[in-house]
């Protein structure tokens, strides 16, 4: 019974995973950033996904401004 409270819906889990790997974790200042495509894979929680893409774009932008190329 204990495990029932854990969410096992695939789409929700994917959103939770992407939200973490794209917006959280250790960052290297001025690091290179990979473009992320294929965003239609996630169709739930679009708000989260968009926020993630925005973060990636912001990182690219910052890199462009500083001219850093690690």
């Amino acid at each position: 019974m204990g495990a029932d409270i854990f969410n096992k819906k695939r789409d929700v889990t994917i959103v939770e995973i992407l939200d973490r790997v794209l917006t959280k974790g250790v960052v290297i200042s001025g690091d290179l950033v990979i473009s992320v495509a294929d965003i239609d894979l996630v169709y739930l929680g679009v708000r989260l996904l968009l926020s993630s893409v925005e973060t990636m774009e912001q990182l690219k932008l910052n890199k462009g401004k500083t001219g850093t190329d690690a």
């Binding site: 994917i14 790997v21 794209l22 917006t23 250790v26 690091d31 990979i34 992320v36 294929d38 894979l41």
Partner: peptide, 29 residues
């Protein structure tokens, strides 16, 4: 693509079962 990001997360998860770790944000090169 997203599949790469999910694979990346899976590697981190596997490692987290074995080590104390700090996860990196996807795309840190």
């Amino acid at each position: 693509n997203n599949d790469d990001a999910l694979e990346f997360a899976a590697v981190t998860e596997e490692l987290s079962h074995m080590f104390t770790l700090l996860p990196m944000r996807f795309g840190s090169l």
